[in-house]
Design a protein around this nucleic acid. Structure first.
Lengths: 216, 216, 216, 216
DNA sequence: TATGAATGAGCTTTCATTCAT
DNA sequence: CATGAATGAAAGCTCATTCAT
């Protein structure tokens, strides 16, 4: 009980914070695995090693918890994106870097994909409530726009490229492959998750994207 | 459509077929709207204008019904693909045609996207049970491969293009945009579903795909 | 279709009779295996190889069908009892014969036991509706009474034996052992259904019953 | 009963136990009355004065609840048997005492009979899961064996009596009469549940059992 | 006589949520 | 801050029974 000598900027909330984080992490896993409707509040509490009541104490409802999870995964990818420093790279290198980053991030964060799918299944009605996510209007777009402009001025990129369209294309090429890898593997009779398949995919995507942005 | 001269082989109770079709259509809508877990058996029955019991009478369980829906939407898109006749078009035209078709089909069949997302959320475990879907191993891939080879021989396409990778890319560019349009619209502050946005997207995608396949 | 030259005592009911018997036999098995509440009308129809509707056509309801089954198994055992001819045997032999018969009959007709248990669980309310069963007031009792009287007069049986009590005892010794063999086997850690256990049981029961009726 | 000096280890919410007991008692009644398949979970909850959900909270499923009921009634009869102290009685008296006890217990606990019938209808598959019941391998058998041996040594009992066979016979004579009293009453046209009939039955059974164990 | 299609009521079970402590 | 007990509503599914042919 006594927490003497701790710097403790807030009176008594170390445990509270930890509990919230535990719930959030557990919820992320559960929602990613089962979707919003399929997720079970009981399982989230169990995964978090906490009583179910705590979940409501901190997050009000299952829906609000889902929103909190969405906000957290967006915050995570934003943090990662910031460290790309595309502005310091040569234009072609920057585009390639972004493509590789996107692929790697989705690959290492499969929950991101399923959570986004859930959010979209519900027509993103959760996001409408969230100011935080709306504020995340990716600064990457601006950076990417500058990269494209640089490339055009240097004469190596074609002109008239919409950075939003390009970003969506870069994301889509990775996202669809990974999101739908089960059905695609079944239909094409290939194991798309094999190591070799992965490197081939990344190579192909870079060819596609760079083949598009580079002037002939 | 024409039923002339048919000896009318089904003596009585042709309603069985109609009931099954009604259930299937209702289920497709419900699963598309709410996902597998979120879909309600009661609502499906109500949508179909039938007693809930009939659903189990014909489809055994909610899961099996979901599989039947998956099979039916796959059958639909396959039927549509067959009518593209890519083999009769000039190579570049064929690739453009496929890109446009994919975009249009997803746009007019939004349920296809949500259903695929659901199937993948559940790791396509439904499809494993389905021989029918496995047999659908798209012949489009073969046709596309032939188109690519023709283009290469004519000297207008680059060589070494994997038709599966290309197909996944073509699909992914459309799929991701439409599947995630809600979150993307929120984040970018643009209405991606506006008419103008649509035509811009299609134009961009054709640029990307053709920019890739065409030799410099 | 043409059934010409058949003697056919009733106009056209050979198949009808066969269907009824098939249903009855199927129902006997099903009720014996699952009890009244646990029995499934669908399974009965399936076992009978007939449409479920037929079952209602001939037997009106599940409950009535159960009653019909009860009546039929009572009729069966009565028919068998009649062939014992206890009146032709020496008294002690007659009592032993009845004991053996009862044991053998229960052993070879396990459904009889489960059906009686079901009837009694429902407080025999089905039997109240059945005149046929009430009329079955076993004539065996009279025969048994005569045997006991003969034995007493011959000086080998004790006097004052109530044939009803004796009959219930003879039946009970077999019935309980067979009806409860699963729980008894579990509790005593013995396999009561082994061949050897059976012969030991029969031997024991004869000892008990004859030890009782015979004068010291 | 005496709770003196107990440090009262259960700080709060002693209601959990009471709820479980209430459910168990209600389930015992319901299963006894309707059998396993005929019992209704709703009615059990209502009888217990609790929400239906609690039943699953504490007992997982209807089947598991049935097992818990079986275990509890076995525990009850075992407790009662322990207080017979057959080892302190003269051999003949002990056998008579056991016969009387068995009769009285079944008479006062009719649910015991119906529950056992249900268990056996389902081939005691519930008991297989229960270690508790298997451990209940009645020590009565050992006590009874000792009584028989004492009687034999004293020269009043015949030799070679298997205590298990004898126990099954004692139980069977009461069990069958009470379990099947409805059908038996119907068939014999006697009211077997009348006071007088009861005392006659008990008297008869003692005659049968003692007539068997006592040397001529 | 025979059948497949259909149904309403009710079954066991599960869910997100709240109460009492 | 934390918990186990409790709940109402609704979920998926099954039942005995009837309709239309």
């Amino acid at each position: 009980m006594a927490k003497s000598k701790a710097p403790a900027p807030e009176p008594r909330s170390r445990d509270a914070d930890r509990s919230q984080q535990a719930i959030l992490a557990a919820a992320r896993d559960e929602f990613a695995q089962y979707g919003l409707a399929g997720a079970r509040v009981d399982r989230i509490a169990e995964r978090a090693g906490l009583n179910k009541r705590m979940l409501y104490y901190y997050f009000t409802s299952k829906d609000d918890l889902f929103l909190a999870v969405l906000e957290s995964v967006y915050a995570d990818i934003r943090t990662a994106e910031k460290q790309l420093h595309l502005e310091d790279l040569a234009p072609a290198e920057a585009v390639r870097r972004l493509t590789e980053f996107t692929w790697d991030y989705y690959l290492q964060h499969p929950e991101f994909i399923t959570l986004l799918n859930s959010a979209n299944l519900h027509q993103a009605r959760h996001l409408e409530k969230s100011e935080r996510v709306r504020e995340m209007n990716s600064p990457l777009i601006q950076t990417l726009g500058e990269v494209l402009e640089r490339g055009r001025r240097e004469g190596i990129f074609r002109g008239g490229i919409d950075p939003v369209q390009l970003y969506i294309s870069i994301a889509g090429l990775s996202y669809f492959y990974l999101s739908n890898n089960f059905t695609l593997s079944a239909i094409f009779g290939r194991n798309l998750m094999a190591r070799k398949a992965h490197s081939e995919r990344l190579s192909h995507m870079c060819d596609v994207i760079l083949g598009y942005v580079l002037r002939d």
